[in-house]
Design a protein around this nucleic acid. Structure first.
Lengths: 111, 111
DNA sequence: GCTCATTTCGCCTACATTGTAGAAAAAAGT
DNA sequence: ACTTTTTTCTACAATGTAGGCGAAATGAGC
């Protein structure tokens, strides 16, 4: 058994989006955040599947919210990144950072 | 057809390692670089498969070198990141950056 | 100088994990 | 009932990973 599971790219993105959204992290919002930040459009199913898997791995936890007082609206499921999730994310980012160090890939337009 | 293919996490890592190594980027060296930088140990096959796929997607190109004057010194295959490869990498990194912006996941030891 | 064992490396094959889509079901308000 | 919002199911494509086989090249022993 591997201790901390490896994160795929999308998983990392989802995790980051959840952290960003804080208290308002439910599927639709997460999806919007991802789209607006990365330009990457994802099908609902894609996201839920990933969310599910992250939860199974114990990297996020979810709680069901109260129905909103809006026109329609099924109860939202809110997600939170667990300690293990943060750890995994940190580790993954550290790997990138190590490799990026001293490498200039990005042509900074020189502000 | 999707224009620029999405990169997986490992693909990004491999790409970065190749960039880092410059002229000396052949499989064994790449593998070492990845291990020493990220602590991630990979089986040879894992790497070659990924390298193969990256090449098929046109993100890297390879040329066969001369045999070395060493004990076993078989000819090495050297890899280079193509323009498309750099572009894909940039895009992927930009996505992360967007999401990381203003988020402090890493507890900076507060220099 | 030939043969063989050893070393360095590349490649193949098969399988696990992640990524993605689309549509359909569920819940809630009007 | 009908519409809206959000979730869930199902199936499939792409990526990640391991491990072992085989090829090339050298040096040692015969």
């Amino acid at each position: 058994m591997s201790r901390i599971p490896h994160l795929g790219e999308f998983e990392q993105i989802v995790l980051l989006a959840i952290l960003r959204l804080g208290d308002d992290a439910y599927a639709v919002a997460i999806r919007d955040e991802i789209r607006s930040r990365t330009g990457r459009s994802t099908a609902p199913g894609a996201l839920y599947t990933t969310l599910d898997r992250l939860e199974q791995k114990g990297l996020v936890s979810s709680r069901l919210g109260e129905p909103t007082h809006e026109r329609g609206g099924r109860a939202k499921r809110y997600y939170t990144v667990s300690a293990a999730g943060t750890a995994a994310l940190e580790r993954a980012q550290r790997s990138f950072q190590s490799l990026l160090e001293g490498l200039r890939i990005f042509e900074k337009k020189h502000a």
